[in-house]
Design a protein around this nucleic acid. Structure first.
Lengths: 340, 340
DNA sequence: AAGTCCATTGCATACGATTGCAATTACACG
DNA sequence: CGTGTAATTGCAATCGTATGCAATGGACTT
């Protein structure tokens, strides 16, 4: 029965009711008697009718679509977040329209404009910076924006991150307890709050022990840059005892360089600590000690916050930072007496 | 200027023309004089007007949205495909609505129904099987479906894969040339054409040398299952000289088990070959010999095919299989005299 | 200069639903 | 059995754009 589209009017005719009645049966919160509801549902089933979300979006102004703005998918953290976000939103009747931003700043402008055009009900920006002007434009359009795994000072946007400063501090404490003194940092991109906060946590944590990072190099969240930084650090006359790398994705590159290119041992010659705890970090080939970002709770908070702002507009942006544990594995020497 | 929505009517008034004129200026292929076009564009710019895709979709029946159905994002191959697909479609004015299918068969039904509801112009099913009934439903709705990295016998759907049989054969030739005789296979899920074809390629390839796989175990495209299979194989009284693993994702698990759990050497004790050539395969920690799936060309072909079918409906489904090279790395012993 | 033809433009309608309003019905209660 | 109240239901307008049709005007031909 390739009879094209079946509209509510068709159903109405078959069920012997008005088109409005059909609409009301399918709109929850509208009043319809059990009798008509039954007739309509029967007719709808028979015809294979399903309400048209586009038409519905047109009249209600709500598309039940969330725009997801994402920059790099090669860092395993983001596909997983995407997977969870999509599942969580699907459960609540929303769906995700994906927009790739080539790099994390350029071209965002027009992409956000496209998102607004599409009448999305909300925007999640993952690993992407949204400048003030853009934020304002979204606010004007009445579309809430939640920043996932990235903060943004000044803008009133809601923000979901892990507790990056605390995370950095935990790494500092752990490394110092493990007896390391010369501690270097290959930082996350300094243009990102995430990167800056982790660095600050490390620095403050070390300061509490009267230390400071021997070197800090911006790894730009990029494999090659991080690998270069690692090579540079380990070629120093007095190379570091430990390197805290701004995220797991870079840490893997660092480990590759140190072990395979330079023939050094981890953690024998140098301890490596990452950040994120992506699944790959647990695989035997890397076995990376790292700070866990609790993806599930971050996703939960993101969805909660976003839907909350969709329901009651003009609620002030809230900053949520979720703490995650340091996961001890084999890439960093452990303090004596610590739990295995 | 939080003045809500600006419609074509507002622009029309400001420009002193009719609403139809505004529409025509923004609809390519419609006739409008340079003079009015200029007036309209000026007014539109001034007001910040942009055509509403929802309303447009409503009337034209074309949403310029492609539904992407995807099962697992933890296999690095898929995020990358998603990234490329999204970028390629974005360039052509389409966008991707993502639907996660928890497992690759269950629940597909209702998800596809949702996709149809959303009036998507086309569907890309990645690593997901679409049964005949569903395919027919999409065909009835006039919505083309392209299967990405999965074939489907019988259904008239278009299909884009790599040349899996040839790939399997290449692995067979390579391993035999390398002097391996006892060759086992941890196969991709036998419910997938991809898995079956690679297995067939291997089997046929070995047969040409008078050999056959010593063991074949279904790895279900799953890390744990593959790891178990590897353990089982290597514990045999006469363990294999080489294992061809149905995709890289499983191969990594196999390598982890063999090297870390069992303390064996790769390729000293056993050669490992994978399939996909995801970026991770090139990283030093794995350095996996594998058959490359040419993602870029596969994506290109997918987009081409899908948009082709959208433009001219009822074009017969076509099967495209793109050949990829075997990439030699360190996880498998090389034939003597082969290029490095 | 008259007739042809084509490009441009406005009017009005359609797309498929939601929803305010008013009319009708049903129901309960005194 | 009358009346008041609440629940249903239909009518009609609406969302923002595309497009068929007819009218207009200008350019061109002969």
């Amino acid at each position: 029965m390739a009879q094209g589209k079946i509209t509510s009017l068709d159903v109405a005719r078959l069920a012997g009711v008005s088109q409005s009645a059909v609409s009301r049966v399918f709109t929850k919160g509208a009043s319809a008697s059990p009798a008509t509801a039954a007739k309509v549902k029967k007719a709808a089933l028979e015809l294979g009718y399903r309400p048209n979300p586009i038409a519905r979006a047109m009249i209600t102004g709500k598309s039940r679509i969330i725009g997801l703005l994402v920059a790099y998918l090669d860092n395993q953290f983001y596909p997983i977040a995407l997977e969870r976000l999509s599942a969580a939103l699907q459960e609540r009747g929303y769906h995700i329209l994906v927009f790739m931003a080539k790099n994390s700043t350029d071209g965002i402008e027009e992409i956000v404009q496209e998102l607004l055009d599409y009448q999305v009900d909300g925007i999640i920006a993952a690993s992407v910076s949204v400048n003030g002007a853009l934020a304002e434009r979204c606010a004007d359009a009445g579309i809430p924006v939640v920043l996932f795994n990235r903060g943004q000072d000044g803008s009133g946007l809601s923000t979901i991150t892990s507790a990056n400063v605390e995370g950095g501090r935990k790494v500092a404490d752990f490394l110092v307890a493990g007896g390391h003194r010369r501690i270097a940092h290959i930082a996350g991109w300094s243009g990102s709050s995430t990167g800056r906060d982790r660095q600050r946590g490390l620095t403050e944590g070390l300061a509490a022990h009267g230390l400071e990072p021997t070197h800090i190099i911006d790894g730009m969240y990029n494999r090659d840059t991080a690998a270069g930084a690692a090579r540079q650090l380990m070629a120093l006359p007095d190379p570091p005892h430990a390197i805290f790398v701004g995220n797991d994705h870079m840490a893997f590159a660092v480990m590759d360089v140190i072990r395979s290119d330079m023939g050094l041992s981890i953690p024998g010659d140098v301890s490596i600590v990452g950040y994120d705890d992506v699944p790959l970090a647990a695989w035997a080939a890397y076995d990376l000690t790292t700070v866990r970002q609790p993806v599930n709770r971050m996703v939960e908070a993101t969805v909660e916050t976003l839907l909350g702002e969709i329901d009651s507009a003009d609620r002030p942006g809230q900053k949520t930072a979720i703490e995650g544990p340091l996961i001890l594995r084999g890439s960093a020497r452990k303090p004596i007496g610590s739990m295995p």
